[in-house]
Design a protein around this nucleic acid. Structure first.
Length: 828
DNA sequence: GAGCACTGC
């Protein structure tokens, strides 16, 4: 039994005690956790047919049309029942009454299973509306609901709004609905100047974009808002007003007015439509998470709203920036500074716009920024700090877990935040050990680990309610901070640390180190205890330590390699990177290093302007270096290109090989994988794996399990592969027709030489003492234990990644010849 | 001898 832990009670910093009634349910998020399968058409098909039988790609596209009408969403059905609503029964279509087009959706060849769906394409608009009416009652209870008029009024007067909405305020679902029927949100005829001086008549606006940092959030919010608006979702009906767009899965209709998309997706759209002419408003949600993409989006948006709008025919763009934390001053300053400046590019001859009203508006208003603060809805969470600094947080967590279990009433599950797989598994073993000796009259304990690398099925266990008389103890990494909501939690134990990736510009090295979290992360973790009832949060650090934490997370833009971000900016016509409005400006050295790297891979010309190659790279869903490899491979012909696409697909996805836990499994894995391993290194091993997986026509899932290959990762690999192949066909780098005959034996030389075109600086040679030293910089690197070349000695290595954990490792390693490296380095 | 979390026409 763990000894008693002394604790003191700190004050709770919660102000409201109202129950959150109508946020997205944990169940519905849990559904999608860890990129579940709803992603590609093919996988949807797999789900419907319920088998692991693998159809060929063609078969899959044949059978499934994108986005069958609203999926059987168990989560959402459940929640509606919970809301006390009668579930939908018989569909009674009456399109005439709804005023919606009578024509049925085009696709007819649906698998029979889909026909049974409650919300089939012959959508029951009546029941949709009934459901929406019922949901309206719970919407009215959201804290943000009473602010609707205020928000609408402010945005009529001004173009930029900052909105602080705490968790549970309902901002993500309600804001688009508040705005969608505003006059400024209508499609507006306008004339846009063309290069030859003439004007093109176009329609500007009509749609609202809402960005999200994560795919699952974009999709589940779209589903929810469609329900609330009483409209079918996405491409399921041409009348659908709500859609979404994430990589590999876009679901919109011609009448989409509200579109949820990932930040990356909006950036991609901006490359093709820099003025965002489809949109009347862009709502940027969850800005406080500060991923690099949101920083770019906000920077581009500031340029847009403070510019002269000629690319939009003078039609204003409304921008709503939403955040959960109150740190709005910096954002306010950021936009205000932009609006102080005169419109940036020298004004083109002013544009006459069809709608005079809009012109008036853009002249008179819009030069200031409005703000709005909405309280959240959370149950109170009592805070308990450690009285003394904790040295071993695994041990301290163990004690607290049992203290809670002994003292606190049921029900009430425990969520423990740890740093990584290793600490999770250690604590898992410890808790299980102690639980054996527990008083049998006490409720049981069920320990559930949760981290990203955990196989799907094991992750899902976290969402099942605990068996009777059992308390769940979920041991999680920071995956549970944002990405996943575990229901039933009333106690949170927070170790105060997290693993953080930091790119070190000077060394070109990524390090992954355990660091203290920020205050806002600590508050976020605490909040996980108060979602369903009053709860408690145990911090395994002192209150003094808490007060010393940074206010917010370090923005990703300060922690990552900037080449991709800079390439995107260059491709959008930002020539002077130094003058770009960064929300947080990265150090000059990091910017210079990234520019140099872009120059090295020929993405920029000597004068710093973007090259043809660079423009092409910016459009690829790859890092610039991997994109460069792809272009280099295409010069070696289609066979080499197809092979390189297979490898790149693996490299741009999480690890495809599963970690083995037990010793015996490890041996079995080694044996099973032996026929996949290639002595040339990891790149060719990945190729042989993709080829074997893709060539498996009976049951890919079983094949993956047998080879201890992650089926989930391989599904992503196939998605990326398909996307890249399609891109290359479109760019005429591959023949139009997909070949299904034999693939010739790969040429390791050509493949690895293609990789050197992007990774010439990621090379090391063997030195006499048996270690490897980088060819540029002479740093010591060790081959990562996950590599097939681990423990092997070759003349020189090429590696995909240089990471520091306990020491410097090269990951994704292949053997290369020194003279290839010499040529690659000389060629630049 | 080792794997924080996200994301992309």
């Amino acid at each position: 039994m763990p000894e008693k832990v002394h604790t003191k009670f700190g004050g709770s910093d919660d102000e409201s005690a109202q129950p959150p009634s109508d946020t997205l349910t944990p169940a519905s998020l849990g559904q999608d956790v860890g990129r579940k399968k709803k992603r590609s058409k093919k996988r949807k098909h797999d789900e419907v047919t319920e088998g692991s039988q693998v159809p060929t790609d063609e078969a899959a596209t044949q059978v499934t049309k994108k986005d069958k009408p609203s999926p059987p969403v168990p989560g959402s059905e459940k929640r509606i029942l919970e809301d006390g609503v009668v579930p939908i029964t018989e569909p009674k279509p009456s399109p005439a009454e709804t005023g919606l087009p009578q024509s049925k959706p085009k696709h007819k060849s649906k698998p029979p299973a889909a026909k049974k769906s409650l919300t089939d394409a012959k959508t029951n608009f009546n029941s949709l509306r009934e459901r929406a009416n019922v949901l309206y009652e719970s919407r009215k209870k959201l804290p943000i609901f009473n602010h609707a008029d205020e928000i609408r009024q402010k945005l009529r007067d001004q173009d930029v709004m900052l909105l602080v909405g705490e968790t549970g305020s309902g901002k993500s679902t309600q804001i688009p609905q508040f705005l969608v029927n505003e006059f400024w949100c209508r499609p507006t005829p306008a004339k846009i100047p063309k290069e030859d001086g003439s004007r093109k008549a176009v329609t500007v606006g009509g749609c609202i974009a809402i960005t999200q940092p994560r795919r699952v959030a974009a999709i589940s919010l779209a589903r929810r808002v469609a329900d609330e608006m009483g409209t079918p979702l996405g491409s399921s009906s041409p009348a659908s007003k709500v859609g979404y767009s994430v990589r590999f899965d876009t679901s919109t209709s011609p009448s989409t007015r509200v579109k949820f998309l990932t930040e990356g997706m909006l950036l991609q759209e901006m490359l093709h439509d820099p003025w965002l002419t489809k949109y009347s408003a862009v709502v940027v949600d969850e800005v406080h998470e500060r991923g690099i993409n949101v920083d770019l989006v906000v920077g581009f948006l500031r340029n847009l709203v403070s510019g002269n709008l000629h690319g939009r025919g003078g039609v204003p763009l409304k921008v709503v920036v939403m955040s959960a934390t109150a740190d709005m001053e910096s954002l306010m300053g950021f936009f205000q500074e932009g609006l102080k400046e005169p419109p940036q590019p020298p004004a083109q001859p002013s544009i006459t716009n069809g709608e005079q009203k809009n012109m008036e508006l853009s002249k008179t208003s819009s030069r200031t920024i409005t703000a709005c603060h909405i309280k959240g809805r959370q149950f109170p969470v009592k805070m308990v700090y450690s009285p003394e600094p904790v040295h071993d947080f695994v041990d301290a967590a163990l004690k607290i877990i049992f203290q809670i279990h002994y003292k606190e009433p049921m029900p009430g599950d425990i969520l423990v935040f740890l740093t990584g797989q290793e600490t999770v598994e250690n604590l898992e073993n410890l808790v299980n050990e102690y639980a054996i000796g527990m008083d049998p009259s006490l409720p049981k304990i069920q320990v559930l680990p949760l981290f990203a690398a955990l196989p799907q099925a094991a992750q899902q266990r976290v969402f099942a309610p605990a068996p009777p008389r059992t308390r769940k103890v979920v041991l999680a990494t920071n995956i549970a901070e944002t990405s996943v909501t575990v229901s039933g939690v009333r106690y949170v134990v927070d170790c105060g640390k997290a693993k953080v990736k930091q790119f070190r510009t000077r060394l070109g090295l990524d390090s992954l180190l355990v660091k203290p979290i920020s205050k806002s992360a600590a508050i976020q973790r605490k909040g996980r205890a108060g979602r369903e009832a009053a709860g408690q949060c145990f911090r395994l650090y002192t209150e003094k330590d808490y007060l010393a934490l940074d206010e917010t997370n370090t923005p990703e833009i300060l922690r990552c390699d900037l080449t991709q971000a800079l390439l995107n900016m260059k491709a959008r016509g930002v020539d002077d990177i130094v003058r770009f409005p960064f929300l947080t400006r990265p150090p000059r050295e990091a910017l210079e290093k990234a520019l140099l790297q872009l120059l090295n891979i020929d993405a920029l010309q000597e004068d710093g302007s973007i090259s043809e190659i660079g423009l092409h790279l910016a459009k690829l869903p790859l890092s610039p270096t991997l994109g460069r490899v792809l272009l280099a491979a295409s010069e070696h012909g289609p066979d080499c290109l197809l092979d390189v696409i297979d490898i790149i697909s693996c490299l741009s996805v999480e690890n495809i090989f599963l970690n083995t836990t037990s010793e015996e499994k490890k041996e079995a894995a080694e044996t099973a994988r032996r026929d996949l391993y290639r002595r040339e290194g990891d790149h060719l091993t990945m190729l042989s794996t993709v080829r074997a997986y893709a060539g498996e026509n009976v049951d890919r899932k079983v094949w993956a399990e047998r080879h201890l290959v992650s089926h989930r990762a391989m599904q992503s690999v196939m998605d990326v592969r398909k996307q890249l192949r399609a891109h290359c066909r479109q760019a005429k780098m591959l023949p139009r027709e997909e070949r299904h005959d034999h693939s010739p034996d790969p040429s390791p030389e050509l493949i690895l030489q293609s990789f050197l075109a992007g990774f010439a600086t990621n090379t090391a040679r063997l030195v006499p003492d048996g270690s490897y030293r980088t060819i540029v910089g002479n740093q010591t690197v060790a081959i990562h234990p996950s590599s097939v070349l681990f423990g092997k000695k070759v003349e020189a290595i090429l590696y995909n990644e240089f990471v520091f954990t306990n020491r410097s490792y090269a990951r994704g390693v292949s053997a290369v010849q020194m003279d290839w490296v010499g040529e690659a380095l000389a060629g630049r």
